[in-house]
Design a protein around this nucleic acid. Structure first.
Length: 285
DNA sequence: ATTGCTTCCTGAGCGC
DNA sequence: TGCGCTCAGGAAGCAA
């Protein structure tokens, strides 16, 4: 399940592969996967298999910039077009350099593809089909994503910010950290790891945390994400890099899906907001 | 306003 | 071997 470090790794991989390439064609092989803000065909959900706006455009421009905001990937072209990708649970972007011999068109889980003028293809592969792609011509990603909270690695994600957000929030701290409107990019794995390292029980009401505890959360959020990015993300099940390699951070997880804590205590597993929470009631208070 | 439940979806893993 | 069940969960939508 790609979270911030996985998305960041994919963005870096994409930059080195497709910056400067000219995007010629966008295809969708499943309804609801690709939406656009300019082609009515793509929004009425009648079509399972088609090209985006094939008669009005022969060129989407050259890939200029690829950025990440929370768990979203935003690809911007020289014509001002923005392609916004969210991988959700099982989405992957795979760059197929040798499209002529791969036979990807018939692959069961390829939901969309981006064709470049040099014959290479970027494939959107998604087993569970939760992933989405938005092609924006009129709107900007920043408008659509305006409700997203702070970037956890930014300077403005600090004790003051989190204190304000948590002030009147009774929800468990685990739920609050998963809330993308509070902080953008954290998912279940990293929130478990962050609260373990911060020594805080995940069920603690957000508004009862002390300044010291908030400080620990901020510090450990940045530390865990930084380390995970350095290890190219966590490959628990489906996440792969653009070149289909796995990340390595799964070897450094301390609490997620663990049975026993480093201290020897048994790890407790509960469910919060429909997701698994792991914690050690000896190391976390 | 806030919180929490349901929905979307498919494959892996398990017990029998 | 194969069937049916449970589990994995990000975010939207809706109900309380």
């Amino acid at each position: 399940m790609p979270e911030l470090p996985e998305v960041e790794t994919i963005v870096k991989g994409l930059r080195s592969e497709i910056i400067g390439k000219t995007l010629k064609q966008i295809d969708s092989f499943r309804k609801d996967t690709v939406k656009s803000d300019f082609s009515s065909n793509w929004n009425d959900n009648k079509y399972d298999n088609h090209q985006l706006n094939p008669h009005h455009q022969t060129d989407y421009g050259t890939i200029r910039e690829i950025i990440r905001r929370g768990k979203y990937i935003i690809i911007r072209t020289s014509l001002g077009l923005e392609i916004m990708v969210h991988l959700r649970m099982t989405g992957k972007l795979i760059y197929a350099k040798h499209s002529c011999c791969s036979g990807w068109e018939s692959h069961k889980h390829v939901r969309a593809s981006f064709g470049f003028s040099d014959g290479t293809v970027l494939l959107f592969h998604d087993v569970r089909t939760f992933g989405t792609i938005m092609v924006l011509k009129n709107k900007s990603h920043s408008t659509i994503l305006s409700k997203l909270g702070a970037e956890p690695l930014d300077r403005n994600f600090n004790v003051n910010y989190l204190g304000k957000k948590f002030q009147k929030l009774k929800a468990p701290v685990k739920n609050s950290l998963l809330n993308q409107e509070i902080v953008a990019g954290l998912g279940n794995i990293y929130v478990n790891e962050i609260l373990y390292r911060a020594g805080i029980i995940p069920t603690t009401p957000s508004n009862t945390l002390s300044k010291t505890e908030l400080k620990k959360i901020i510090l450990q959020t940045k530390a865990v994400l930084f380390e995970a990015i350095q290890k190219n993300g966590t490959s628990i099940s489906d996440y792969r890099r653009v070149d289909d390699k796995t990340g390595e951070f799964q070897n450094f997880l301390r609490v997620y899906q663990k049975k026993v804590c480093l201290c020897g205590n048994k790890i407790t597993k509960i469910r919060q907001a429909g997701r698994s929470t792991f914690y050690c009631d000896h190391c976390q208070k």
